[in-house]
């Protein structure tokens, strides 16, 4: 594909593009913290329920201590999300511009580069 020419212009689309420069999107918080937090709390609550499960509840789940296992799994997942955020924290928008190829005025996002 020919990459040298500019795409077709349209006033409404251009207007929106101009607005993007004053975007506040860089202030968006990191969703990993919310997912991690919710699952850690879910994990703790459900694990505790699993520890104190009565025989009737274990029998209902075909003899599987499902609360215990599901609780521990959710706790592990929640902590993993928090850990991911801790090792690769959201970069401040200003620092991101170094990594941008081509568009120096691109606003950064609240995430480390890539997916």
């Amino acid at each position: 594909m020919d990459n040298h020419s500019e795409p077709a212009r349209d006033p409404l689309v251009d207007g929106a593009e101009a607005d993007e420069r004053r975007s506040a999107a860089a202030r968006l918080f990191d969703i990993r913290r919310v997912i991690g937090g919710l699952f850690a709390v879910y994990g703790i609550v459900v694990t505790l329920m699993g520890v104190f499960d009565s025989q009737a509840e274990i029998d209902k789940a075909e003899g599987v201590r499902i609360n215990l296992w599901a609780g521990l799994a959710m706790l592990a997942f929640g902590l993993l999300m928090l850990f991911w955020q801790w090792v690769r924290p959201a970069e401040p928008p200003a620092a991101e511009q170094d990594g941008v190829i081509g568009q120096p005025d691109d606003t950064g996002s609240a995430y480390p580069e890539g997916s």
Binding site: M1, D2, N3, H4, S5, E6, P7, A8, E96, G99, V100, I101, G102, Q103, D106, E113, G114
Partner: peptide
């Protein structure tokens, strides 16, 4: 033309 597949790429 007119499409930049690398637009804003980090």
């Amino acid at each position: 033309g007119g499409i930049d597949l690398k637009a804003g790429v980090l």
